[in-house]
């Protein structure tokens, strides 16, 4: 019995030693709590609001309209609903969806499942789509946002809306929340990046060629003209460029101070 107690005592002392060292011998660090997830309240959302979320995402965060427009970079989204059946039956179709909602969802996360003829990556013979998986990478749409886009496309295309509003979306639209509370940007080139000017215009390091070159725009245009062109792009059209290409809602999405900064910047480019 004496031996037994001695052994127990020894073992407990050893454990106490390890515990003591771990508690007091090394710096006490409190690990960072897990990052919080911001949520949009989908529970209180009506289907109309959900569809509206889809539209906002499509035009904004999803950056879909940068390519899916009349300029022929990507197929028009309006063509989805009339053609879905045909595409799903096509032998080139590699996906597994059976209906419209599934097809739209699939096209967003697996763009190469079906590549509309003529829109594949050059050299791939229309087997690989140049479109990124929009649920990942810099676009990073959440499941809720993807579903909202499906809902919007179904609704605007006149099909029956078959998706349901998800009840819980985890880290759904933290970007969405960001966008609503974001601070005005002061650096003009950052403003240009934020609003995607460089996609069409030549500005800063971007070399867009769909809109007028802005690198020396200050030499020929004054501030008044530039500001008007940002806020109401269809009022004055540069020669050789069409109307309705540049977004006309910049007045709604930009801070006034941002409009002024970028106007100043453009006016100074001579």
């Amino acid at each position: 019995m004496k031996q037994f107690l001695a052994v127990i005592g020894f073992s407990l002392l050893t454990i106490a030693g390890f515990t003591g060292f771990s508690n007091f011998g090394i710096p006490r660090i409190e690990p960072a709590p897990p990052p919080t997830e911001e949520k949009i309240d989908l529970g209180a959302m009506t289907m109309d609001q959900f569809i509206a979320l889809g539209e906002r995402t499509l035009n904004g965060k999803g950056t879909c309209k940068l390519c899916h427009n009349e300029l022929g970079r990507a197929p028009m989204l309006e063509e989805i609903i009339p053609n879905t059946e045909k595409r799903l039956a096509d032998e080139r179709y590699k996906g597994a969806s059976k209906d419209l909602a599934g097809y739209i969802m699939e096209s967003m996360v697996m763009p190469s499942a079906y590549v509309v003829a003529g829109f594949g990556k050059s050299g791939s013979n229309d087997t690989v789509s140049p479109m990124p998986d929009v649920s990942t990478g810099s676009i990073g749409l959440s499941q809720a946002e993807l579903l909202a886009i499906v809902a919007y496309l179904q609704d605007s295309g006149g099909a029956e809306v078959t998706v349901e509003i998800p009840t819980d979306v985890g880290n759904a639209a933290d970007e969405e929340a960001d966008a609503e509370v974001r601070d005005p940007i002061t650096d003009p080139l950052e403003i240009a990046t934020e609003f995607g000017c460089g996609t069409c215009h030549k500005i800063g390091e971007d070399e867009g060629d769909l809109g007028p070159d802005l690198t020396t725009i200050g030499a020929t245009r004054d501030r008044e003209y530039l500001r008007r062109s940002i806020l109401y792009p269809n009022v004055d059209l540069a020669e050789g460029y069409e109307a309705d290409i540049m977004p006309d809602d910049l007045g709604d999405t930009m801070f006034a101070v941002e409009v002024e900064r970028i106007t100043d910047y453009l006016a100074g480019l001579k």
């Binding site: 969806s97 909602a101 998706v163 349901e164």
Partner: peptide, 12 residues
């Protein structure tokens, strides 16, 4: 048109 495809891409 069943709602979910084989690959389970439709998370709806």
């Amino acid at each position: 048109l069943p709602g979910i495809d084989q690959l389970g891409i439709d998370a709806g």
